[in-house]
Amino acid sequence: MNEAATVLKSYKGPKIRIMEVCGTHTHEIFKLGIRQLLSDDIELISGPGCPVCVTSADYIDEACWLAREKECVITTFGDLVKVPGIKSSMIKERGQGAQINVVYSPQDAVLFAEKNPDREVVFLSVGFETTTPSDVIAVKYAKEKGIKNFSILTANKTMPRAYEVLADSTDCYLYPGHVHAITGTADCKAMLAKGTSGVIAGFTGPELLTALAVAVKKCQEGEPFLVNCYPRVVREEGAPAAMRLVNEFMEPCDALWRGIGVIPMSGMKLRDEFSEFDARVKFAIPDMKEEYKTPCRCGEVLQGKIKPFECPMFGKACIPDHPVGACMVSDEGACSAYYLYGGLIDNGR
């Protein structure tokens, strides 16, 4: 680890831009104070890997509509509750009597539905490859048990197409270890074939330092590279059982990423044969799409084009207690991490 720290501190040369794709990486990098251990010639960019941050505003409005108009019990991970939609937010709906239950697992949501057969229970299914299998397990449970009052509102996303869209913003990806624990290394290899470098990283201090140091060393060699720095968890083949399960219940679809726009085939939705569990189909949710006008520059933050503190709203109108953009909502959001942990040295470095 000391060797890694030396590599990172002493690097001098052309600027190296490394994009951490995963929100947990962003959070841990701040929490561990890693940015101050880096040479000025290494720049970390916080990418779009926080599921809350890339969840579109109209998705939030869909959830609010279900709570308000259909009196569904909305079950969700806690972070989503504060995300502003265009018309409303779940915290506002809750204040007006809607039932919004925070759960720690989709399984808790389906069990709640089983115990309360007189209520329609909807789980907000957001997240990347890491969380999607557990969402599917909840649907599978409902199917097997014949639970009719449970459905999910999908906004699940997958990383590979996002890697392609953002490849020009970075010299090297710090690939999210837990996504590739599920999907294996094939997607990273495909990026390598297109000339995009990356290291697959774990989440502890030593793992992050090591992965960053490997990235810097390899960048200096000049050839595109891929190194799995998280081999204790990420295997080449990933977790085939989890992938099979997801593919049995879901299929790819276009997905709207907040701040970035639609990325074709970067989302997952339930297959037609499971549409009884698809809240959009079950409740015939009307089209919520509306142009989202805001001075918030979350989109550019998510694409690594600006740093959070370059947004005019940052730390003023937009703070964790009153988030304007989604990046300020979740602990894993880039803006929230900069707000909570930044400012020690050089304006949030």
């Binding site: 680890m1 720290a5 929490k31 561990l32 890693i34 940015r35 207690d321 909570l340 400012g343 020690l344």
Partner: peptide, 17 residues
């Protein structure tokens, strides 16, 4: 409140609230 982390970095303890 500034915290020296296990790997030698410095970070703020996020303020309470």
């Amino acid at each position: 409140v500034v915290m020296k982390t296990s790997i030698g970095g410095m970070t703020f303890l996020p303020p309470p609230g």
